[in-house]
Amino acid sequence: MIKVQTPEPFDPLMQEPLLPPKGHYSASKLERVLRAGHFAVTSELNPPDSADPRDVLKAAEPLIEVADGINATDASGANCHMSSMGICSLLSRAGQGVVFQISCRDRNRIAIQGDVLGAAAMGVGAVLCLTGDGVGVGDQPGAKAVFDFDSISLLRTLKTMRDEGVFLSGRKLSTPPKIFLGAAENPCVEPLEWRADRLEKKVEAGADFIQTNYIFDVDRFERFMEKVRARGLHKKVFILAGVGPLASAKAARWMRTNVPGIHIPDSVIERLENADNPGREGKEICIELVKKMRRINGVAGVHIMAYRREHMVNEIIEESGVLKDRL
């Protein structure tokens, strides 16, 4: 069993604000774990379609034991759910490390800069800047797409708020947000040739950590990491490789066709197809991926996206043995 410290609840109004340790940008657990040199684990929470705070805790439960940061998605796939802001506020109050995801699709620069202050006030220490999927793939394709920022201009803006203590308008912040800045990268989709260059641009814009999209094609990822190492980027940014358990060959094919930015090689789908128990095979594949990621030079952790299979996250991490150094 993995030993967990019982998290201390945090009440932002009754307690002193959480201060970052020396040399850290934030007080977030994720930054602490990464800077200590541990192999970090983050995982995505399935956001409830509900206004009940207990549903948030229920969704977080299977992740709490192993995740150094719980990612609250921001209407991922352009589907409406409880906001990442609401989820992060609740989980921070429960003492959990969270990653506040921001998609540029739904809010403009005025809303986002304000949200970041709000989130930081609630004790959120890590933010993930995303451009976001187009509205067309979601449950409300008639919505107006905003895209005022893109992930990179958002990163630079938040870095400016944090380090210069001003809004993009130049107005001063009396207390800047103390946040660890994250971004995504998708190493396995086109243009493969330029993906490492784009990562470099994200680092340049202000990224402190990266959570990648799903990786099922280790060869492609290795080639990406070679370029990353050649540029020395793995020393400037913590890279968490994105993995997840597939449910079946059918589900994998569906994801490949319908979810933007997912590349699954045929060999993986064949393995699921030939398995007696595809669910278990999907989990096995995921455990193998976690172990492989652990061995790649420059990978600082894994980001597990187990949509509707969150109950497996614990076992995947335990069976992979990546947290052994923290027993």
Partner: peptide, 21 residues
């Protein structure tokens, strides 16, 4: 770019280099 991305490409590029949207 349908997302008006000024620092692209986004992570949704399709096989062969086609637009996500």
């Amino acid at each position: 770019c349908p997302k008006n991305v000024r620092n692209g490409p986004c992570g949704g590029v399709r096989e062969g280099g086609f637009c996500e949207v």
